[in-house]
Computed example of a mutant assay.
Amino acid sequence: MGLGNEVFPWAKAYLASRELGFGLLQPPWGLNPRDYRTEFGTPRLDWVGHAALRAVLPSETVTDEMVRSTGRIDYGEAIRVLDAEHGWSRRRALLLMHEGMSGGYLGIARARDFLRSRLLGRKPGQEGREPDPARLHVVVHIRLGDFGGTSAGPRPGEWNESVPVEWYRSVLAALRARLGDTLHVDILSDDQVRVAGLLPEWAREDSRRRSTLEDLSVMASADLLICSVSSYSMLAAFLSDAPYIWYRPHLGEHGGFLSIWGHEPDQRTGPTAANVLRERQDAADPALTRGVAMDTGDDLPGWLADYLGTRTALRRRSADLIHYGVVPRHAAVSNHRV
Score class of each variant (00 low, 15 high):
G309I: 03
P154V: 13
D215R: 01
P154I: 11
V81I: 13
A237D: 11
L213P: 04
L183R: 11
G49M: 01
H98E: 01
F8H: 03
E158V: 15
T212N: 08
E201W: 07
T310I: 04
E65I: 02
D241I: 00
P156A: 08
T63N: 03
L188W: 00
L53N: 10
W202E: 11
A319R: 13
S259V: 07
R92G: 12
S259H: 12
R278E: 12
E60Q: 13
G197Q: 08
R34D: 12
K123W: 03
L115P: 00
G107V: 00
Y168D: 04
G23V: 02
G270P: 02
G125Y: 04
R316N: 09
D223P: 08
L20I: 08
H141C: 07
D282C: 07
T296C: 09
W10Q: 03
K123F: 01
W167V: 06
R317M: 08
E6F: 05
D191S: 13
S189P: 04
S228M: 04
R34Q: 13
R210C: 06
Y75P: 08
G197I: 08
G71V: 00
G153F: 09
W303V: 10
M1C: 10
Q267I: 04
R80C: 01
Y232V: 11
R311V: 10
L15R: 00
V56P: 05
V67A: 00
V292S: 03
R169I: 06
V163G: 05
R34M: 07
L57N: 08
N335Y: 13
